[in-house]
Design a protein around this nucleic acid. Structure first.
Length: 810
DNA sequence: CGGCCCCGCGTTTTT
DNA sequence: CGCGGGGCCG
């Protein structure tokens, strides 16, 4: 009967999917093109292993990158083989599965099982403390950069002692090696691991303790890895340690969607999989079930420009569909307007729901303009990512209390709460405690427990305050074993004085902090209840709650997912998702690709893959937008269209000429748009170069794709008095600086003043149109417009808010 | 020690 | 523009 059922299931698959599912004799690499049913293959394969091979669910290990992916896969398997069996599958993120293993094996690697997990901000703050303690200049040793370097080293399994001689080591910053050493030591003293340690320590556990490795090899009969293209070296080695004997390993991924190298992911892992597993068989899934033919073709035409990839031919038999659309906009506001109008139009025309739409951008900061416009238009939306619930100050503070109670050695948590709410233990005292701790090589908490023993010199009144704090923490610690997370958590928030601190004020942002705190408490209650329901009543303590929360991200909380809403997110967080209509916005040089990525071929190819990922999220419509003038860092900048637009086969890209959407937006039309031409063509049309009249020397022409341009961009951004402009590309491009001292200034708060310094007859040098004379002025404040007769570019109307010019002669 | 104010700086993506 | 950190004063 089960066999019969399995046969039916297999019949739902296409040939290549089925082959991938039923091959279970050895290492296996499945290259799954976008939308080719990768998750389907994984779930069916697990069902197959359970039913055909009679593997016990606890003998199957499936590793994913997000909690959400793990949860969804588990649900899908439950539908295939039943709740009961699916429940015992070992399925989760690398980080959460390894954290669980490390807790039970902590002793072997010299940790206690109640270790805390440092998040990125904890790591950075620890690095910062170390830098300061060592008396180094934090301008030269930027904490964030150093922490990233350490993280990168860990992802490559480079231990502190080896760092000085590895390729990541930068001789200009020799102290990083020492900082790394101290960092590792301090983590140990704090009984804490950062995200990367969860991998590094697991690797060390398995490579240095053969008996333990054997135990887990025995346990994991079959190992499956999702999104293998995003694994880093450490993850790849761990998987290898677990599978090298049996070679019962199936990794699934798409090299064309490898977009996490900044996190240490190494595309070589998937490209060279068959070096590690010499007998591995390669399977390819090439039929895309998600998108229309033209979307797939356009995406292919883009990704073909990359050199490093596994050759494959992704195709679709769905309807042909429409070409990609490119809609140029004047400004970021107009861009948002175009997108919102399109959403409303398509929803009516094609009878879609709000949740059928997604707006994808390169950086989180870009969500703002869309948010504003959607508010105005009453379009329901949800922004994913950004700062997660658990990263908010008030929540982090509460969590810091929990962490301290579970693991008082946790230095970062302790520092956070030792004087919050204020209890008279200030910076100076903390420094003394930390000094004593470093001197004796113990944790801060050890010093607090026995100040005399470690020679802590403080005033008597301060000593009393420290001791009061100690008693406070120890009092709660005694209740750890008897009370559940909600009970204890609730009283901690009360007794610590957090409640008093937050509820005493009626400032609007304190109100939202109160709401957040309520929500957090409700979350703990849910946690305790659902654990009880799952028959895990003994895993409801604060420690269990922390374990759950430490590795949770915002994407996991679908509180109000019942309401259909437009999704706004970065391309990175859109991976694995699909939408009937996808807008990819901000397709401009210096945004997408990001300027950080344009130095190396490798990085640029990754950016291209990122755009590939974005396009392949779309089922029916994929609409690209780019804005020419954009507010960034609080100032206006001028962007050229993304070089990636040129990589898309022009016959698969429809460019939107001026239309009704745009007329409602009161902004001047600049030639780039008014000419109604293909922007790819316009991009190379040189703007009229003004004759140099002013005394400032004209800057030499710089190609916007060159490294010098980046340099100039950087100076222009950091300089207070200069704006810059990129001429339209190619060989004749120019980059000039325009002093902004004469630009339009907004009115004062009381409504007076502001405006431009222009009069009729003033001669200005405009950053794009060159030299011209002001003919007429109208409007006020933000709407102030000038009509200017330019020497080489005809008469233009400028919305002064957007214009950059300087006065030559008035 | 605590609170307030000002300055400076930055924004790539995240388990 | 908005946040966070540092410095200064009470």
């Amino acid at each position: 009967m089960e066999k019969k059922k399995m046969e039916n299931l297999l019949n739902e698959l296409n040939d290549s999917q089925r082959e991938a599912v039923v091959y279970c004799d050895g290492a296996q690499l499945v290259i799954a093109g976008a939308g080719s049913g990768k998750t389907r293959v994984l779930t069916y394969k697990i069902a197959y292993l359970l039913q055909q091979y009679n593997l016990a669910p606890w003998n199957i290990l499936a590793l994913t990158f997000t909690n959400k992916a793990a949860r969804e896969m588990k649900e899908r398997i439950a539908r295939l083989v039943g709740e009961e069996r699916a429940r015992y599958l070992l399925m989760g993120t690398f980080h959460s599965i390894f954290a669980r293993i490390l807790r039970s094996e902590a002793a072997a690697i010299g940790f206690q099982s109640n270790f805390t997990i440092y998040d990125q901000s904890d790591s950075r703050s620890l690095v910062k403390n170390i830098i300061h303690e060592k008396g180094l200049d934090d301008k030269e040793y930027k904490p964030a950069a150093v922490a990233d370097q350490i993280s990168m080293a860990k992802n490559h399994l480079i231990m502190p002692d080896a760092f000085g001689s590895c390729s990541l080591f930068d001789p200009r910053h020799p102290q990083v090696a020492t900082i790394y050493k101290m960092y590792a030591m301090r983590c140990r003293q704090a009984n804490a691991m950062d995200f990367d340690d969860l991998l590094v320590q697991t690797f060390l556990l398995f490579s240095e303790h053969e008996d333990i490795r054997r135990k887990y090899v025995e346990k994991f009969h079959y190992v499956l890895v999702d999104e293998y293209q995003d694994t880093n070296f450490a993850q790849q080695r761990i998987v290898y340690l677990l599978t090298r004997e049996r070679q019962r390993v199936c990794v699934v991924g798409d090299d064309a969607q490898s977009i996490y190298s900044f996190r240490g992911a190494d595309i070589d892992n998937i490209l060279n999989f068959r070096d590690a597993y010499t007998n591995a068989r390669l399977f390819k899934l090439e039929q895309n079930y998600r998108s229309t033919q033209l979307i797939v073709k356009a995406a292919n035409s883009l990704i073909r420009k990359n050199e490093r990839q596994i050759p494959k031919d992704v195709y679709s038999h769905n309807e042909q569909g429409e070409r990609l659309q490119l809609k140029p906009a004047q400004s970021d506001r107009e861009e948002a307007l175009i997108v919102c109008n399109d959403i409303k139009r398509l929803r009516r025309k094609e009878d879609l729901q709000w949740n059928d739409f997604a707006i994808l951008y390169r950086t989180n900061a870009q969500s703002r303009s869309f948010e504003e416009q959607m508010r105005k238009d009453n379009i329901p939306y949800r922004i994913y990512g950004g700062l997660s619930f658990y990263q908010r100050k008030e929540i982090k503070d509460v969590i810091a209390y929990f962490r301290t109670i579970v693991n008082p050695d946790d230095e970062e948590a302790l520092r956070r709460i030792i004087n919050y709410p204020t209890r008279g233990i200030g910076d100076a005292t903390v420094k003394k405690i930390a000094g004593a701790a470093t001197e004796h090589g113990v944790s801060l908490w050890a010093v607090i427990l026995q100040p005399m023993l470690f020679g802590l010199q403080v005033a008597k009144s301060t000593a009393t305050k420290i001791d009061a704090f100690r008693q406070l923490i120890e009092g709660w610690r005694e209740r750890l074993g008897t009370e559940d997370a909600y009970e204890l958590g609730h009283s901690i928030i009360q007794e610590s004085g957090i409640t008093k601190d937050i509820y005493s004020s009626h400032e609007p942002d304190d109100l939202s902090r109160q709401e957040n705190l309520q929500e957090f408490l409700a979350g703990m209650q849910d946690f305790v209840e659902s654990r009880r329901e799952e028959d895990r009543g003994d895993e409801t303590s604060i420690a269990d709650f922390l374990q759950e929360v430490a590795l949770l991200t915002d994407l996991d909380s679908d509180k109000d997912s019942d309401q259909p809403k437009v999704s706004l997110m970065t391309v990175h967080s859109a991976k694995g998702l699909e939408f009937p209509v996808v807008f990819i916005v901000g397709l401009e040089e210096n945004i997408f690709p990001s300027p950080m990525c344009t130095d190396s071929m490798r990085a640029l190819e990754e950016e291209r893959r990122l755009l590939y990922v974005a396009i392949t999220r779309a089922e029916k419509h994929c609409i690209l937008t780019c804005a020419e003038n954009r507010f960034r860092f609080g100032r206006l900048e001028f962007d050229t269209p993304s070089r990636f637009i040129r990589d898309i086969d022009p016959s698969l890209l429809q460019v939107d000429g001026g239309n009704s959407d745009r007329q409602s937006f009161a902004s001047p039309r600049l030639p780039w748009q008014a000419q109604n031409a293909h922007p790819v063509a316009t991009q190379f049309k040189a703007a009229p170069m003004p004759r140099a009249v002013s005394r400032t020397k004209p800057e030499p022409a710089v190609d916007p794709l060159s490294p010098q341009f980046k340099q100039l961009l950087h100076t222009a951004r950091s300089g207070q008095t200069n704006a810059f402009t990129a001429g339209r590309g190619g060989n004749t491009s120019s980059l000039r600086r325009i002093d902004t001292q004469a630009t339009h200034t907004p009115p004062h708060k009381d409504g007076t003043g502001g405006g431009s310094l222009l009069r009729e007859g003033t001669i200005i040098e405009h950053q794009r149109f060159g030299i011209g004379t002001v003919v007429r002025l109208e409007g006020e404040g933000d709407n102030e417009k000038a009509t200017v007769a330019f020497r080489n570019a005809g008469t233009k109307q400028l919305l002064l808010k957007f214009a950059r010019y300087k006065i030559v002669n008035s």
